[in-house]
Design a protein around this nucleic acid. Sequence first.
DNA 1: CATGAATGAGAATTCATTCAT
DNA 2: GATGAATGAATTCTCATTCAT
Lengths: 208, 208, 208, 208
Amino acid sequence: MSPRPKNPPPDRRGEILEAAFRVFAEKGYRAATMAEIARAAGVTPAALYYYFPSKADLFRAAVTERRSQLQPALAALASPDARELPPREFLGALLRAMADFLADERTRAVIRILLAEGPRDPSLVAIFQEEVYGNIGAVLGYLEQHMAQGNVRPMDPRVFLLFFQGPLLAMVIFRDLLRLGPYRDLPNPALVEPLAETILAGLVPEKR
Amino acid sequence: MSPRPKNPPPDRRGEILEAAFRVFAEKGYRAATMAEIARAAGVTPAALYYYFPSKADLFRAAVTERRSQLQPALAALASPDARELPPREFLGALLRAMADFLADERTRAVIRILLAEGPRDPSLVAIFQEEVYGNIGAVLGYLEQHMAQGNVRPMDPRVFLLFFQGPLLAMVIFRDLLRLGPYRDLPNPALVEPLAETILAGLVPEKR
Amino acid sequence: MSPRPKNPPPDRRGEILEAAFRVFAEKGYRAATMAEIARAAGVTPAALYYYFPSKADLFRAAVTERRSQLQPALAALASPDARELPPREFLGALLRAMADFLADERTRAVIRILLAEGPRDPSLVAIFQEEVYGNIGAVLGYLEQHMAQGNVRPMDPRVFLLFFQGPLLAMVIFRDLLRLGPYRDLPNPALVEPLAETILAGLVPEKR
Amino acid sequence: MSPRPKNPPPDRRGEILEAAFRVFAEKGYRAATMAEIARAAGVTPAALYYYFPSKADLFRAAVTERRSQLQPALAALASPDARELPPREFLGALLRAMADFLADERTRAVIRILLAEGPRDPSLVAIFQEEVYGNIGAVLGYLEQHMAQGNVRPMDPRVFLLFFQGPLLAMVIFRDLLRLGPYRDLPNPALVEPLAETILAGLVPEKR
DNA sequence: CATGAATGAGAATTCATTCAT
DNA sequence: GATGAATGAATTCTCATTCAT
């Protein structure tokens, strides 16, 4: 009957968002129920509707909230200080940072949601696209500059991104999402170091 | 030709499986309803239960059926004749074949289902794992042989697979599943040819 | 568990429509619940959705069904044989028939629904308008003919309708719908006979 | 003028009552939500409960309040000065006044509520019954006197009321509530003048 | 084989109401 | 006086599933 816990809860909205994201990531949008999210947030289902008009809105808000939480990590990938480094070091550092970023539990949850719901919900993809491309754009700028100087083999930037994002993404998908047996105990560096070497061998021609 | 008197009895089971797979791939397991699958198959929902005991079973059967349909294409990836080629040619051919395989509409549907449902259903992943690894194993055998001969840089085979599956998978995910704007008009060869060159540059040392 | 009563129910749809109309008339659209309608029809709420896609559709169907049930009585009001009578007899007969029609339980239920929901739902009104006007049109035709012959004082037909429908409608509203104390025991003839006389006195000039 | 220091304290209660009546009249009791009423009144739903214990009480209070607003208009219908007139003039004046009263927007809203909720809520009807009958009683008194004098044909007063209220009520229902096409542009006098003539022709015998 | 009819168990959502502040 | 936050009890609607025929 009493609609209120005694001590004022500090940030119900945030707690709900957090709980909702967890449940959505674990179960997927359809299988996640408002009742379960409410339980996870320690409130009643009706409380969810006090803060968000619908399940779809809660989902969107939860995802957007998570995006902004990831924002600093994403921005760090394009940190200005790394851009002083020569291509080999820069790319190595970038690969390591990106591997850590992708393998982070919070990022993985986003990837899971994006892969599960994105194909049916382009607007969901759009939430991240802008953000990601804004930060990756800085990286591409660095590369284009060095391509122009002949330090890096000229290449379609999209292809370049696939080169080093692809293996990392595949690792996260196989190892962390699908939990394929053979990949289960593959540590990040086991992929990243050979990847850096191999890709760089192909990308940065005359240094070899 | 056949002495069968009536018009060929329709392969109801097969049609249902086909329709079910389409609907599951498009909507995801939870959002796909038995009614919609039935409609897609041209039967009533009750008929589904004549052939399959439950939605979960139908899903599993539909996925398994699709796996066996992809089987020939997968097997071709490990075709014995390509294994006569030297590493550069072999790897190039493999990359091209795999890119075509991954980008094929039927494969994409499987990937979509695996990415969406796999994280919550390890047994679903298992259905494909065996199959895929059986065929990829042949490829790995080839490589191990050449690594031993010094023709290919020695490397963890899992990492090797990530190297060349990763970018292809990423391309399919970005371009075909998430339909990211920038990737929408990236043709397979635009990725595959630079990928072959670059990776090979790193993988096959003395040729450079 | 058993989804089916043993002996096949003869006309579930009709029963549901009937029950729905009763409940809608008694409670109004909003206050009537699918659960109560189901109970009244002896089925489960889900069964309602087997026959009708939504509550709104069920409402509409129930009202339309009732309209067609009333159709014969309405048509009788414009029966051709009464049209052979001279104006005084014709109007008297019409008034009596209409009073009986309006005071009939089934008609009253329609009036109740129309008065309660009509102001917010013009399409509901439209369901009856056509029907009613079709039949009343015949009456008006008779009158116009006699107006032309000078047997009936010329008059706007809408006003004419208000003249003799109005008191009858008011009687039904006061007596049967609002159950105003003073009207509770006013029998139809107590209104109809003076009404016939009085109105006719004004309407059929030279006969007096 | 007034020595009150601050800006006049708003009549919250009155505003709420006003807003509540509007919303109830437009949507009906069930469909009207406390939230919407609060919004219309410019307060929060909780504030409603400061002034009224429940939705039902608010409804009742809003209706009663409106009744007292209509009171003067109702009383005017039985104004003493008109009672000096001879029957023909008196009845004509009464008809005109009543038509104006019924067609007034505020009265219409009351009628709408009474027709929609009255059948399920006798106590709602009672709120007005007393009021109305008190004032109409005066009119009936006038008539009874003239009936006794032979100036008006003797008649059950309830029937008399139906005679001239009925067409007016029907006009308001058809034209203003149900918005029936044919009645939409029927002005009050188009009904009232013929009605006066016709009814009087029947009611006031020797003048004809 | 196949279906029409039906259902039980949820699911999202609404809403009058409460109460500490 | 007034409100923000919250809730319990409906309510509409969905859907996998059943089974007599």
